[in-house]
């Protein structure tokens, strides 16, 4: 079986499901009343900083410091 043959059927499925479930812009707007909390600069840097600290720690203990 060639899976690509199913692509038109998949498109048809998406259209039919969307026709039955579609939300209007006003309904969506009501759903997202509150603004998402902004991602602060230090939150973006948290993971790289953690990686850096762990690397330093590992280098420290493996080099005998």
């Amino acid at each position: 079986m060639n899976l690509d043959e199913l692509k038109p059927l998949w498109e048809s499925y998406k259209t039919q499901v969307n026709d039955q479930s579609e939300w209007s812009a006003s309904e969506l707007s009501q759903l997202i009343q509150t603004r998402p909390a902004p991602v602060l600069w230090y939150q973006r840097a948290q993971r790289p900083l953690l990686h850096f600290c762990v690397s330093c720690f590992l280098m420290g203990i493996t080099s005998g410091c």
Partner: peptide
């Protein structure tokens, strides 16, 4: 955001289905 979701909600509905 609303423009994005309005145009792309089909993807989400297809997954939920």
């Amino acid at each position: 955001f609303l423009r994005l979701i309005t145009t792309q909600q089909k993807l989400i509905h297809s997954l939920c289905g």
